[in-house]
Amino acid sequence: MIAPIISIRNMHKWYSGVHALRGVSLDINPNEALGLIGDNGAGKSTLINILSGAQTADEGEIEIDGALVNIRNPRDAMDLGIETIYQYNSMVPTMSIARNMFIGREPLKVSLFGIGIMDQQKMRDDSVKAIADVNLHLRSPDALVGELSGGQRQGVAIARAMHFRSRLMILDEPTNHLSVKETAKVIGFVQSLKNQNVTSIFISHNMHHVFECCDRVVAMARGKIVLDKRIEDTSIEEVHEVL
């Protein structure tokens, strides 16, 4: 039995009147690609927002490598190695690719109290490398993110998450609002994550994508986990049935 990287214990979340998470417990094992599915409003985003520090739980615990952690904000999560690619885009369109790659984590040449001169050459070089590492082909790290297609943007977001060697990569519907072709590209990135043994949570409404990209499928409904199986032990039909 392998020890899980991340354990979520008895997680609860209320939004004034809505009980969005009703005692969710989940173990995420190393090198596992976990597909999280469920109807609109099932609580998927709420669950992963708590992991990525965008929201805080009302009750429940998170353990990383067996140690209790306290995630109060996105920075805490990032420092713990949790990288998130959000449903909406996590890039600033008016900034260059290189600058976007390092927002909030700029390499500094000299600094005082955390403020300092950025090493822009390193930012450029590292972004070129990171982007090449996810097999994305972009000409210049100085191009504005706003000029990229939706799929390319998500590619850069994935490259960024990979660059910071995350322990856990969370992708919350990364193919939302993308064309079929762009979706195929992003699914390609996610599949390559699985091949590179990156631990990930992949949220999608598309069962086929989940079955293509993941080792394990977890289904949520009304704030609870209703199914948790390895891909080879279940089928699209069975998952449909519980939802």
């Binding site: 965008a54 904000n73 959000y86 996590s90 890039m91 927002i103």
Partner: peptide
């Protein structure tokens, strides 16, 4: 620039 460019992304990046 990030804060003024797209606040949700700047927040999400900590």
């Amino acid at each position: 620039k990030a804060t003024g460019g797209f606040l949700p992304a700047a927040d999400a990046m900590g």
